[in-house]
Amino acid sequence: MITGHLLSAADLSKDEALNLLSTAKELAAITDGPNKKLPTLRGKTVVNLFFEDSTRTRISFETAAKRLSADVINFSAKGSSVSKGESLKDTAQTLQAMGADAVVIRHGSSGAAKRLADTQWIQAAIINAGDGTHEHPTQALLDAFTIKQHLRNDKSDLTGIRVLIVGDILHSRVARSNVLLLTKLGAQVVLVAPPTLLPVGVGDWPVEISYDLDSQIEKCDVVMMLRIQLERMADSFFPTEREYSRRYGLNSARLAKLSKSAIVMHPGPMNRGLEISADSADDLKSVIIDQVKNGVAVRMAVLYELLGGAQIGDSK
């Protein structure tokens, strides 16, 4: 069981991660039933503190918290005092004064979640929902859950599964968290990207590197396409979008080369026609909608483990 905060996929041991995934599986089964709501977190308050735009992560956390009967407060930087220049510290102390039990934070700066967890600004459990280009641990958990659901049975880890992560590794917190978690669970991870979109020091990661998607596509079990983050593309990392799409995009020709059981993943939001073609995104091999559905179950499991039991400071 995990305690305290969830800041990085690196904080999870292999057993903790597998435990979370099996808890998520049970919760998914329960919420598939006629009554989707559980009383477990009644009286707890979860704050979604979103300094960056998000559709699925915020809605997913909100749904997860509500299915466990927690109260949810949504905070987005737009339309709040942050746009008047309020600091993270003051915002956190405001939330503390209002009695938040958990804070789900998405922030443009790497390390923002850890900053909240390490200071005394707020006593709540901190869940990192994406910090800059650093990490997005619940996305990695839901990806691991989805891979397990499609390619592995109950008990086992991901040993022997070969995962291609294709695209903008440099800016991708999803890629970082996935590398940490999937390799810990035994999967083989291959990063496929143009050299300009690989981070410095990637040679020390426990992964293979390739610049050529076509040489890798036939021998993988999972192909995970990353979004080209057009908002972070101020420098010219590749000549044109069209050239990127031809060399690193998933199209129907590459889709046809995948092995029979292979699955296609994308953390969303997709740039259809850039990193993934519309027919690939809608193909039977695509599990992108499953990823969204599993996100709710995985986040329920995280909230349950962090908030479900006795907390530090609770009276006995």
């Binding site: 808890t23 049970e26 559980l38 479900g308 039991g309």
Partner: peptide
């Protein structure tokens, strides 16, 4: 597990299959 009234009094327990 999810319906116990003493959930708040002890550390969370892993869920078992129903």
């Amino acid at each position: 597990t999810l319906h116990r009234d003493d959930l708040r009094l002890r550390p969370p327990k892993p869920l078992l299959p129903t």
